[in-house]
Design a protein around this nucleic acid. Structure first.
Length: 625
RNA sequence: GGUCCCGUAGCUCAGCAUGGAUAGAGCGCCGGCCCUCUAAGCCGGUGGUCGUGGGUUCGAAUCCCACCGGGACCGCCA
């Protein structure tokens, strides 16, 4: 039995009573009470009626309650003096149904809102010239979690990672290797070396020696059309991408396909899309003014965006349109495909090749929905992409920008990086070029170190390998949780000291709670499902837990339809809090007979639901920590 | 200047979509709890003009308007 059904039940009880009284067409809400001790479901029907019939709410409420039929799910229905009608749940019936649903039924937690539909999600898409910093981690974690949620909703999901291998950022690093004598054989993780050393140094040199910028221009040209430099570059970029992927995998994210910008450029997709845009009159050749000689995409209210410069070259944003069209299957697929790597789960990661070769491959595009996960600074460009895609005919196709606010660094953290700060400025935006950022691997390593220290004192008998595994999982759980727990439209001000916490509102809190529950089942020596146990769950803590557990599918559905991982996170946290209270107040293993078995069923239900939720959130599950 | 986002406890944030009862957590601070399934935990206390002013409403943190403060975007850069 789920909470949604419970609400439905209360609603129909009200409707029946209204019918009996002879009242029709009343709008009202069935709500979750916000205060304690007034039942589990409430409704404001008396308020709306009182307005309509000009009678006091309490009078209406009493009349409705007086005309209600007895329902076994509710043990008490009461008209509150303020005018609410409150329903008290019969836990005996409700708990029984919950256990049966969660513990016995197959497919618990699988929804089907997306059945039969394909969604293509692009996330990560980090320039291949540096290691991932904490801002990229927010993108990866949000994108990955949305992917997991959409899969759970029944969608057929493809996860794409776009590699901009022809941009200035890659070219900067290549300038370093080709003209400034940086060595490619280094001890350090290669992406970190490129970002932390080469990229920053090259950008300093640009200021001293502007002729280097000319060299960069030549590199970019070759990257786009091919040439000897492109050959050397490919090896370097490949190495960086593989190192970046290791970090993403660490975070728990896996992909279906890598899309290379150079392949899109060489595919001829742009010309195809451009002529479609022309045909539909969505672009315009400008004859006068500041954009003279350019082709612009027309937005609403005179807004416009240059797509083709007066010299005939396309701008950066123009590449997004053919890519989006490909994702939604609006243009024919002309890529070839091959396997790029095998990921930690064993799943193949594929990559595009510039030309089709007729070999078998999974279908990565043809989405009904394309979701691009990228921060809010790209909103304007993304809106133009959406407009263009809509215009060239994605009938029933939807292009969606899933935007989120950036991760900035706190004043203290910037100070720790050795930079000068202004006293009145509370946070600083990250900058790869200026070296103002914190690498994901460094954060994970530091979290891991702390987790291992703590775990060692609790598990002195465990060896290095065990501690290492647990430490890594705690670190990942902590970071993913920290990046998912707030709303997408909130700037995260990352503070290194704050981020190192493993207590309170954190990922490890959930992992710990689950481990304790698992331990109870373990020590109980197994348990078996049986009917008629719920009636023995009489304690306040037990009831709260039953009620919350029944809201799980509802919480997941909300997270899915709102593209909001946070909603699931908040629910899970609340659930863990309820379990921890139960854990303190209601001993399981010390009890005997029915109470013990009833509590075991409750614990088992919790373990099943929390494990499931943590999987959806990508927070690693630990049986012990 | 235009568009968008944020503003709730000392700090970090829920609650706002769909108005409803006494505005909730974590961190911090103060005080308790390991005889008992893991104390990364639990319980109690502390702490709030919900940015400001108006409006709508029986009822506003929630909806509307104006203003204030902070941020982002607005290039023939990528």
């Amino acid at each position: 039995m789920s909470y949604l059904e419970l609400k439905e039940r209360a609603k129909s009880a009200i409707l029946k009573a209204l019918e009996k009284i002879g009242i029709k067409d009343v709008k009202f809400d069935v709500l979750e009470p916000t205060v304690e001790g007034i039942g589990e479901v409430t409704t404001n029907v008396a308020f709306t009626l009182s307005k309509k019939l000009k009678r006091p709410p309490i009078e209406m409420a009493k009349e409705i309650v007086g005309n209600m039929e007895i329902d076994p799910w509710f043990k008490k229905i009461e008209a509150h003096p303020k005018g609410y009608i409150n329903f008290w749940l019969s836990y005996l019936e409700y708990g029984e149904a919950l256990f049966e649903r969660v513990l016995i039924r197959e497919n618990y937690g699988k929804l089907d809102v997306g059945r039969g539909r394909k969604v293509v999600i692009e996330h990560t898409s980090v320039n291949p010239n540096k290691a991932l910093h904490i801002g990229h981690a927010r993108n990866v974690v949000i994108g990955d979690t949305i992917g997991r949620l959409m899969k759970r909703a029944g969608y057929n999901v493809s996860i794409l990672n776009y590699i901009d291998d022809t941009g200035t950022q890659v070219a900067d690093v290549l300038v370093g290797f080709l003209y400034l004598g940086f060595k490619k054989d280094v001890e350090r993780k290669f992406d970190q070396y490129c970002g932390d050393v080469v990229y920053i140094e090259v950008n300093k040199r640009f200021e001293e020696d502007p002729s280097l910028i000319e060299k960069r221009r030549e590199i970019i040209k070759q990257l786009e059309v091919g040439g000897p430099i492109a050959e050397v570059a490919r090896e370097i970029i490949d190495r960086i991408v593989r190192e970046q992927l290791k970090t993403c995998w660490r975070l728990g994210a896996e992909y279906d396909l890598l899309n290379w910008e150079s392949h899109i450029l060489r595919s001829g997709y742009w010309n195809e899309v451009f002529s479609m845009l022309k045909k539909r009159d969505l672009v315009e050749f400008v004859k006068d003014g500041k954009y003279k000689g350019c082709w612009v995409l027309k937005g609403g209210e005179g807004d416009e965006k240059v797509l083709v410069r007066s010299d005939g070259t396309t701008v950066y944003a123009a590449k997004d349109i053919p890519y989006a069209a490909w994702k939604l299957g609006i243009i024919e697929d002309r890529f070839g495909y091959e396997v790029f790597a095998i990921q930690p789960s064993g799943k193949e990661l594929w990559t595009t090749k510039p030309r089709r070769d007729g070999k078998d491959h999974p279908i990565f595009n043809n989405g009904d929905i394309a979701i691009t996960v990228i921060d809010v600074r790209q909103s304007r460009v993304q809106n133009f992409v959406k407009l263009a895609v809509k215009g060239i005919g994605g009938e029933g196709k939807e292009y969606m920008h899933l935007g989120y606010e950036v991760v900035a660094l706190s004043k203290d953290t910037v100070k720790e990086l050795g930079m000068l700060v202004k006293e009145d400025k509370e946070f600083y935006h990250m900058s790869g070029r200026k070296g103002v950022y914190v690498n994901v691997d460094d954060i994970l390593d530091e979290l891991k170190k702390r987790a291992i220290e703590e775990s060692k004192t609790r598990n002195p008998e465990e060896d290095e390998e065990w501690l290492n595994d647990v430490g890594e999982k705690i670190a990942v759980g902590a970071l993913r949780y920290a990046l998912l727990k707030q709303d997408l439209d909130k700037i995260i001000v990352f503070d290194i000291k704050e981020a190192m916490k493993l207590e309170g509102d954190t990922g490890p809190y959930l992992q710990y709670s689950l481990a304790r529950a698992i331990r109870i089942l373990e020590k109980a020596g197994g348990w078996e499902f049986e009917r008629g146990l719920a009636k023995y769950l009489d304690e306040e803590e037990e009831r709260k837990l039953v009620l919350l557990l029944s809201k799980y599918e509802n919480a997941m559905l909300e997270a899915i339809v709102n593209f909001s991982p946070k909603r699931l996170v908040k629910y899970v946290r609340e659930l863990a809090v309820a379990f921890n209270s139960f854990y303190e107040k209601c001993p399981v293993l010390q009890e005997e007979d029915v109470i013990r078995r009833a509590r075991l069923a409750l614990v088992a239900t919790y373990v099943k639901i929390l494990s499931d939720a943590l999987q959806v959130l990508g927070i690693p599950i630990l049986e012990r920590l």
